[in-house]
Design a protein around this nucleic acid. Structure first.
Lengths: 250, 250
DNA sequence: GAGTATTTTATTGTCCGACAATCAGACAAG
DNA sequence: CTTGTCTGATTGTCGGACAATAAAATACTC
């Protein structure tokens, strides 16, 4: 019948004010924030209160500090920040590998198509380099996994769409552990990935969105096969210990 | 040559410890956190330090409080939390409506297909209800926009994939303002949306993923037409003032 | 005068102690 | 069984303090 009348503690109000200032770019990226004491003076609150507000903004990725620096600067959330937060959220919502895979399946073909449509020469070169790096890699499971993720990243970048770029990161992050298992346990995994990448690169180079999307669809579908062959149950929760989940094939 | 040896202030270490405890579910959701004084005692730091740590976790959505309550509880990030953070990030990365639209184009058909495959009777009922609500709505632009978003939400829910559900929210949030403009300025918008929803619901009901995806593709493509007809430049940045952006057709 | 040491200052991280507001229960009264 | 009253616990906020150290300013060297 009645709404609660919603009082907000000072630390929240302070962080809110700073936040909106940043969002409407009155505090532009790279700007150095005033000192805590100065902020406290301006807002007429205690420094402790200001600090609580700053911690919030800091973990939102809106404030950060330069390497080892003391003062805070206005920044925007990086891929890493967002990726970390989102993948953590997915894990807490008990997302399973099949869920992540399904999302990948939905989103990657679109990304590939966008990349094919709009790739700059530079982005293309980047993409080719990544593919080659993976192909040349021997052993070194972890690095190989990084290369695969790097390929998706480069593709997202080539699409020149920040939404894609930012959404890509958390999915890859969740995928990586299981991908490592696949590469370890499925002998033909590397060559299949390699050839899929080659086809996708070719399509992107030829500016052929349709073909890029199709090859990507196959590529992602292959991952699913990989899970099955590697003995990773599709219902494994991401963030779970994979070693515990894979059915014990030696 | 050498990595910086990375000292972390106490408030960070405290929040990190609590965070990992939550992530590995040693602090299960719904658990009441000890009082600040108690935490300070256990970590052997000052209460102010604990409070800074708590603020970080709070804005990550890992801690929250029950309506008007005082004590903190372990929670997981809600759709709203994530949606807010992500859409804010998109805005700061200068995403444009066309970028968001493209992401929608990529992801929604997959969601629709998933919903068609797995919808429970209950989720289907929910979806139908949402569609009907939109159809019955007259005037009340804001509410109508909410209904459209609600339709996508219900669809994501029906897919029973937390990844989809969580990714949906921020996209919709960014879309809403421009959607409002479309509904205002494009006379046939409502009826087109209504009929698309009807087709999608039918496909979901019939458990026909392929058809669901196809209709969704058309539905989303329609939005793009809507932008053009409404005079919203596709390169408008989301979060920008739309009234300033629409070409002045009175 | 450009680059390198050295000193000085400013700023953050942390602590302590304090107090009002208020939430959560217990308890009494109608 | 609801309403009012009391009590204790807990949070939000404050003020002041101090060591560590980053940033700025200064002196020094070639």
């Amino acid at each position: 019948m009645f709404e609660p009348l919603g009082y907000a503690p000072a630390y929240l109000r302070v962080s809110e004010v700073i936040r909106t200032r940043i969002l409407r770019r009155e505090l532009p990226e790279g700007e150095r924030l005033p000192t805590e004491t100065e902020l406290a003076r301006q807002f007429e609150v205690n420094r402790s209160t200001v600090r609580e507000a700053l911690r919030k903004l800091e973990s939102n990725g809106l404030l950060g500090r330069r390497r080892g620096g003391k003062r805070l600067y206005v920044t925007r959330p990086t891929r890493e920040t967002i990726g970390g937060g989102l993948s953590q959220a997915f894990a807490l919502h008990r997302a399973r590998v099949v869920d992540v895979w399904e999302a990948l399946q939905a989103v990657q073909p679109g990304i590939a198509a966008a990349a094919a449509e709009r790739r700059s020469p530079k982005a293309l070169a980047q993409l080719e380099a990544t593919a080659l790096r993976f192909a040349a890699r021997q052993g070194e499971r972890e690095l190989a996994v990084g290369d695969v993720a790097g390929f998706f990243d480069a593709l997202g970048e080539a699409g020149a769409n920040p939404v894609f770029t930012l959404l890509n990161e958390p999915l890859l992050r969740l995928l990586k552990p299981s991908l490592a298992v696949i590469i370890d346990r499925v002998p033909q995994a590397r060559s299949r990935i390699e050839s899929a990448q080659k086809e996708i690169v070719a399509a992107v180079k030829a500016r052929d969105p349709k073909s890029a999307a199709e090859w990507m669809t196959r590529h992602v579908r292959d991952f699913r096969r990989g899970y099955e062959v590697a003995g990773i149950p599709l219902s494994t929760e991401v963030g779970e210990d994979l070693n515990a989940a894979v059915s014990g094939l030696s």
